[in-house]
Write a protein that binds this DNA or RNA. Structure first.
Lengths: 335, 335
DNA sequence: CTCCTTGATGCAAACGATTGCAGCCGATCG
DNA sequence: CGATCGGCTGCAATCGTTTGCATCAAGGAG
């Protein structure tokens, strides 16, 4: 908790001027090597640390990227953040992270606040309304959206066409012809994409697809249990692994054998998916890479270029024990 | 991506001076109401936003709190961050989050970097060595440690004495007299505390306690499976829920009945613990509150006071199906 | 010996905001 | 009617750093 050392303190101690100290510390070639060495030495002894706020202020651009995520506790987002953080730090930027708690209004507030501190914005799985997004894009900083498709912004997303095809191919190979999708949060673009591509692919593969609403957490999956049980589907696809694991849990509690009576598959393959009972069939995606690519798009844009074409990442199926051959007969059972 | 509007632009548009605009916007009582209204109006029309960097620079103190966590993907830390974030934002501060990836050297680098931008530091479950911590505390900003006890800093932690007592009481009531602890990361202070309090309490309760090393993830728990199986303990306590769930998974894969043959209990009660098979007995703690309390200590300190006494939070036992009566005879089984 | 070049250094302006202080103007009082 | 007072407003300094430009000393060339 010592007092802050300023450039002028170093200058005085070194018997020179602030400009010389600044130049010496920043490696200008206008300064004689001996002076550089001396100044560095003195600065080191005094424990001088440049005031980054003053530096950035003088230099103009904020070296900060603002990021919004719907939910910090969801491993999917944590890993996107990991990737983005690593890339941004390597580029000399740091992250200002905001959590919207899955609330579009809160997200809008966040954007509004983050933009005051940031030279760029990354909206991760934005739950913003169309109008809200427009507003965000009108801000005086470049914006990249992860898992949300918009014009005039960088876009990095999972390729849900591939995702849905992989899931349905896997299930049809196991003999399933009737599949139920348990959906995600209403404002989620990626939920919309999952539905759209599932529908389209199901039609092409002659699979009957039903849909019910769900959410993003284990509780949402657990609560969907009765609905799922009463459906005529032999396989269920859930919005994400947390929902899937919650659903598996309900099935277990209610004596429904998975996968003998019902198959369950999901998106994301978060680490815990391998440890559910039974282990959950899911779609592995390179989440950290989503973050890295977002950063790449941003640097290009900050470098003056136009927005590059959207980056689409294809997931990969990880078949585990929660999916198996479709049962032959209609389920006979009450509650 | 419009150009940034500055105070002087507003001043010109409003036909007044920057000082007047500044005062009008900041609600000084030295300005006539009509002018205030007019300036506000013009500023609104122009979409003026104060440059926070310039503002903070002028005002002196950085309104940023730097935070380090070992692992962003661990729900425990996510929720601490949630609590801290909410409290700090309410106090007008924002969070700069750094992830050390469970690496003490990286954490030291992080601290070194964060301190350049922050007016205060929160070290969450710091893995720093003693010397590293000293260094961090020598920085010219106040530091709060969550789940790590140090002098000359704010301290907020889980009360592991209570935690260990609750776990061992629960297990002894179920008839267990021999318990194995599967430990956490070597640099973890809280792992040390868990061990210390478990040992002490076990001695007092006449329980035999064995210990093996583990880690922080599901994989660590899974890998500990064989060791656990070959031990003579009837109950296992794991470092955290992720480890516990990994261990449960190994037991399932290898046909060991839980809790009939082995009881498993753990610390933290992350949301997913309720959905493991069987659901995991764990210790619920108010993680978000850890973050809030850290902020409270910080504000007191920033207000000029000395560090308050450490805040200790008592956890609460959530008994689920992974713990049950101890089996009567020694386990007979190979691998 | 003087002038000019060159390399090293310092002076001072600038970034965008806040704020102490001086100044201005109208009103009030003697 | 002039002095004073008080309420608003603007000028200018300031925060810590960077950087264009002036300056200065030394050395070489004429």
């Amino acid at each position: 908790m010592a007092e802050r050392i300023r450039l002028i303190d170093v200058a005085r101690a070194a018997g020179t001027s602030v400009s010389t100290v600044s130049r010496a510390l920043n490696g200008s070639d206008l300064i004689s090597p001996e002076v550089v060495a001396h100044v560095r030495d003195v600065a080191g002894k005094l424990g001088y640390r440049a005031d980054k706020r003053a530096q950035e202020f003088k230099l103009g651009r904020p070296l900060t990227v603002g990021v919004t995520v719907p939910d910090l506790a969801n491993p999917f987002f944590s890993e996107v953040l990991k990737g983005l953080n690593a890339a941004a730090r390597a580029g000399g930027y740091r992250l200002l992270i905001g959590e919207s708690s899955e609330d579009p209004a809160e997200e809008l507030r966040l954007v509004d606040e983050l933009v005051d501190y940031s030279g760029a914005l990354v909206l991760c799985s934005s739950r913003l309304t169309r109008a809200g997004l427009e507003k965000a894009l009108a801000q005086p900083v470049p914006v990249v959206c992860i898992n949300r498709n918009v014009k005039n912004a960088g876009v990095v997303a999972i390729d849900y066409r591939v995702a849905s095809r992989l899931l349905l191919e896997h299930l049809t190979e196991l003999g399933h012809r009737r599949v139920l999708y348990v959906g995600g949060p209403p404002a989620s673009w990626s939920d919309g994409e999952r539905r759209r591509t599932l529908r389209r692919t199901a039609r092409a593969m002659d699979v009957t697809l039903d849909e019910v609403d769900g959410g993003w957490s284990g509780n949402h999956g657990y609560d969907a249990g009765p609905t799922v049980l009463h459906s005529r589907a032999t396989a269920v696809i859930t919005f994400n692994d947390l929902v899937g694991i919650g659903l598996l849990s309900w099935m277990y509690d209610n004596g429904v054998e998975v996968p003998a009576e019902l198959s369950v598959a999901s998106y994301d393959d978060i680490p815990i998916a391998a440890y559910s009972r039974p282990p959950l069939t899911s779609l592995r995606n390179e989440r950290a890479k989503l973050g890295e690519l977002a950063w790449e798009q941003l640097t290009k844009r900050l470098g003056g270029a136009d927005w590059p074409a959207p980056d689409l990442l294809s997931p990969e199926l990880v078949a585990r024990a929660s999916t198996g051959p479709a049962r032959r007969r209609a389920r006979i059972r009450t509650t």
